[in-house]
Structures are given as C-alpha cells and as structure tokens.
C-alpha cells in the first residue's frame, strides 16, 4: 500500500510497511527533520561555515571547545582519542544528516544516529551519577529544547531522536530517496 506522497516520487521503499497511509509520508518527514538537525549539529561543532545569518543563536563552537566538552565527561579517554572524536563525531553527524536528507544509505544513517544517541544518553547518565556539570555542546550556542547543563532534559531529547531514527530504521527511506536508485541497480 502506498500513499499519495509516495506516488509523487514513484514507488515507496519500506514506507508502507506499517500498513497505514500516513506511513508513506512519515519517513520523508522524519528524514528531513532529523537530517536538518544533524547537519546543524555537525556544522556547529566543526565551525566550518557561519550559520548565524540564519539565526543569531546558530553560533558555532571551535573544535577545541567540543574537545573540552568530551574531556569534561571524565571517561579517562586519552588525548589522541579525544582529538579523534572531536572531529569524527561531528563529521558523522554531518554525513548522516546529509544521507537522511538525500535518502541515501538511509537505514545506515538511522542506525548510526540511534547508536550515537544511545551512547550520548549513557554518557549523560554517567555524568549525572557522578554529579558532574557539563554544558551541552550539542548545537553550539543553540539550546534546542533544553537549557542548562546536561541532564534529564537532554536524555529525553536524545531518546526522542533515537526513537525517530529507530522508526526510520524500520520504515526505510520512504518516498523521494536515492536509495531506490541503488536498489534498482542492485536488482
């Protein structure tokens, strides 16, 4: 069963799997929303381009600021590993965000985002259990849904992101995704 949104871009992938018409459009909505959020999140940590022209709160962190945020978790990570994660995490967010927007490698991107969010949740829970206060470096100066140091609000927010990624993992790219082209070539 395919919905109207799916018909606009040809046959949907797994978007109709749940059997309800809205499911055909849901993957596209989730992909665009999550994709945009993770592109912003990655860019805010990499300080590659200024986005404050979009909104004054979109002020990027320097990579070193993010490195110190990772260190503040006090997980005993060595400096080379912190330096690697400082760039690997935001690039992962950026590429996964782009992949979701394009509908390319959608399930892989969704799986990585879900795992990343679960890792962040575990990290925040560990912080809370040790009574440490760490500012959220998540979106640079932008405080999305949550203000103050990392805490329960951020756990709930990340659970929401993980759940959305989980839905994409289940439903697939839906309409208007480049994955369909890959699948056609494969068959």
């Amino acid at each position: 069963m395919t919905g109207r949104a799916a018909d606009a871009c040809g046959p949907a992938g797994g978007g109709a799997r749940c059997g309800v018409p809205i499911c055909a459009a849901l993957p596209l909505v989730l992909r665009l929303t999550l994709g945009a959020l993770f592109i912003i999140s990655g860019l805010m940590k990499l300080n590659l381009v200024g986005l404050s022209w979009i909104h004054p709160s979109l002020v990027a962190l320097e990579p070193r600021d993010f490195a110190f945020s990772i260190r503040a978790f006090k997980l005993g990570l060595s400096d080379p590993l912190v330096q690697f994660l400082t760039f690997a995490i935001p690039w992962t967010e950026l590429l996964c965000g782009l992949a979701l927007i394009l509908g390319l490698l959608t399930r892989g991107a969704a799986a990585i985002i879900a795992l990343l969010m679960l890792a962040f949740i575990a990290g925040i829970a560990s912080l809370l259990s040790r009574g440490l206060d760490v500012n959220c470096p998540c979106f640079g100066a932008l405080k999305l849904f949550c203000t103050g140091p990392l805490g329960a609000c951020h756990i709930v927010r990340n659970l929401g992101f993980a759940a959305a990624a989980g839905v994409l993992l289940w439903l697939g790219p839906g309409p208007c995704g480049l994955d369909r082209l890959l699948e056609r070539r494969a068959t």
């Binding site: 969704a110 799986a111 990585i112």
Partner: peptide
C-alpha cells in the same frame, strides 16, 4: 549498502576518514 549494517559501515568509515584528515589539517592544542 541500503541495509542498516552496510550503510552504517560506509558512513562510519567515511566519517572517520574525513575526521582524521580534518584533524591533521586543524591540529588541536589541549
């Protein structure tokens, strides 16, 4: 590639490779 594991492996490898290149271009003093 369009599966969860295949896609994740491609994206993870690409992100790590670009991250390492970026780190070499913008070394961090901690």
């Amino acid at each position: 590639p369009t599966g969860a594991i295949g896609g994740a492996a491609i994206l993870a490898a690409l992100s790590c490779a670009i991250g390492v290149i970026d780190l070499s271009l913008r070394p961090l003093t901690l």
